[in-house]
C-alpha cells in the first residue's frame, strides 16, 4: 500500500469527502472501493500532476462534484530509480522528478489556494521528505523536495491571515511501492544508529499525522515542518 491510499483511508474514516487525484486510475479505483467498503466516500479524478491542464481540469471536476474544498493533501511524488553521483545523473531524471514533485504541487497551489482564500478557510498538508532537509544519495529528489518545502513555507507565511494553514510533513522510509522500486536502498538508513525507530514503517503511520494537521485540533499550527521518519532527521 502506498502512502496515498493510507491517507485517503484515514481521512475518509474521519468523515472527509475525498477526491483521489491520481495518474494510476486502477489503483485509485481500488482505494475508492476500500473506502466504500468501510462506509466512506472517495471519488476518483484521474490526473497527471505533471500536466498543468489536467490539474486545472481535475480541480474543476472536484469542485463540480463536491462543491468546495477545505483540505488539500499533496502526496504524489516520484523517486527516480537511479541512485548515482550528480555527474552521472541525466537530464531526464531532473525533468521527470521536478515535473511531479515540485510543479505538480505548485499547480495545485495555484488552482486551490485562491479558492481557499475566497472561502476564508483551508488546511493544506504537503508531503515532502526528510531527504528535503538532509544530504542524501538522491540529490535530484532531495532538491525537488527542498524547493517544495521552501515554496510551501513561504505560502504558509503569505496566507497566515487568510484563514489558511499550510504545513509540511517529512515522511521517511515507508514500506511502499515507491521504495520497492528503488534499487540499492541504503541499508544504513534502516540501522538504529541512523534511525531510532529502525525498519520500514507501515504506510498507515503517515495518516495520523496528516489527519491531525488538517483537523481543528491543529488550528494554531501553520508553517510547521513535521518529520514522520522514525527520528532520522533527529539524530
Amino acid at each position: 500500500m502506498g502512502m496515498g491510499r493510507a491517507i485517503v483511508l484515514r481521512l475518509a474514516a474521519e468523515g472527509a469527502l475525498v477526491s483521489i487525484l491520481d495518474i494510476d486510475k486502477d489503483a485509485a479505483d481500488a482505494t475508492s472501493a476500500l473506502v466504500a467498503d468501510a462506509g466512506g466516500d472517495a471519488i476518483v479524478v484521474p490526473c497527471d500532476l505533471a500536466n498543468r491542464i489536467e490539474v486545472r481540469d481535475a480541480v474543476a471536476t472536484h469542485l463540480a462534484r463536491r462543491g468546495g474544498i477545505e483540505i488539500l493533501v499533496n502526496n504524489a511524488g516520484v523517486m527516480h530509480g537511479e541512485d548515482d553521483l550528480v555527474e552521472n545523473t541525466p537530464d531526464r531524471a531532473w525533468n521527470f522528478t521536478f515535473a511531479v514533485n515540485l510543479f505538480g504541487p505548485a499547480a495545485l497551489y495555484d488552482e486551490i489556494i485562491p479558492f481557499m482564500v475566497r472561502a476564508g478557510k483551508g488546511a493544506i498538508v504537503t508531503c515532502a521528505s526528510n531527504a528535503g532537509v538532509m544530504g542524501t544519495t538522491r540529490p535530484v529528489y532531495g532538491a525537488s523536495k527542498g524547493a517544495l518545502i521552501g515554496l510551501t513555507l513561504a505560502l504558509a507565511r503569505r496566507h497566515q491571515r487568510d484563514g489558511l494553514r499550510i504545513n509540511v510533513v517529512l515522511p521517511g522510509a515507508f514500506a511502499t511501492p515507491m521504495i520497492d522500486r528503488v534499487r540499492h536502498f541504503p541499508a544504513s538508513v534502516l540501522h538504529p544508529r541512523y534511525r531510532p525507530i529502525a525498519g520500514l514503517a507501515d504506510p498507515a503511520a503517515i495518516g495520523g499525522a496528516i489527519a491531525f494537521l488538517v483537523s481543528d485540533d491543529a488550528a494554531t499550527i501553520n508553517g510547521a515542518i513535521v518529520p514522520v521518519d522514525g527520528g532520522a532527521t533527529a539524530v
Binding site: M134, G135, G146, I149
Partner: peptide, 18 residues
C-alpha cells in the same frame, strides 16, 4: 524561497556524495 530550499538541499546532497 523555493529556489533557496532547493539549492540548500542540492548542496547538502553533493556535500554528502562528494
Amino acid at each position: 524561497a523555493g529556489i533557496a530550499g532547493g539549492l540548500a538541499t542540492l548542496a547538502r546532497s553533493i556535500a554528502y556524495q562528494y
